[in-house]
């Protein structure tokens, strides 16, 4: 099991799996190649790198840098044909929905939109997703079955 920390991008080939913990408004996105059982996962925190106040940041932090990085690495290093890549995603929740106190409203929703826009730019289909709502998620991707396990508190686990 390979752990993907916040703002990180990691890759795995079966029998390894990719796991990221405690997604709130962040989005966990997996791009995978079923034929070679290869996958890459990013734990995206924010929609757009134009928000960045510093010039140095991990590419996994923003949707507009994370997806291109995932695609580049999968096609160049792992030799996966771009036309055969697929995606699954989870997260983008709004943890405190009762009252809106945060000035950056619904960052979760914007993260989801940004990730989807990026995926569609690369013509990568989203096979399944579990997004939005108001609870945290831990996700693990298994490279052989191409299933994404989602675990949430008080809600148990299921596969998408």
């Amino acid at each position: 099991m390979i752990h993907v920390g916040i703002s990180e991008i990691k890759f795995a080939i079966h029998p390894e799996s990719l796991k990221t913990l405690g997604l709130g408004s962040c989005v966990g996105v997996v791009i995978y190649h079923q034929q070679t059982q290869t996958a890459g996962m990013a734990h995206v925190m924010l929609p757009d790198s134009s928000f960045a106040r510093s010039t140095i940041y991990p590419p996994g932090k923003y949707a507009d840098t994370a997806i291109p990085m995932l695609v580049t690495k999968l096609t160049e290093y792992y030799h996966c044909p771009i036309s055969e890549l697929k995606a699954k995603m989870a997260g983008g929740a709004e943890m405190f929905r009762t009252t809106r106190v945060l000035s950056m409203e619904s960052i979760g929703k914007r993260n989801i939109e940004a990730v989807k826009a990026q995926l569609s730019d690369f013509h990568i289909p989203i096979i399944s997703e579990e997004i939005g709502k108001d609870y945290g998620r831990t996700v693990e991707f298994f490279c052989d079955s191409c299933r994404l396990a989602i675990h949430a508190l008080f809600r148990g686990s299921h596969l998408i």
Partner: peptide, 8 residues
């Protein structure tokens, strides 16, 4: 989960 709450 603390991670989900804090990241917000």
């Amino acid at each position: 989960m603390a991670g989900a709450i804090l990241s917000e």
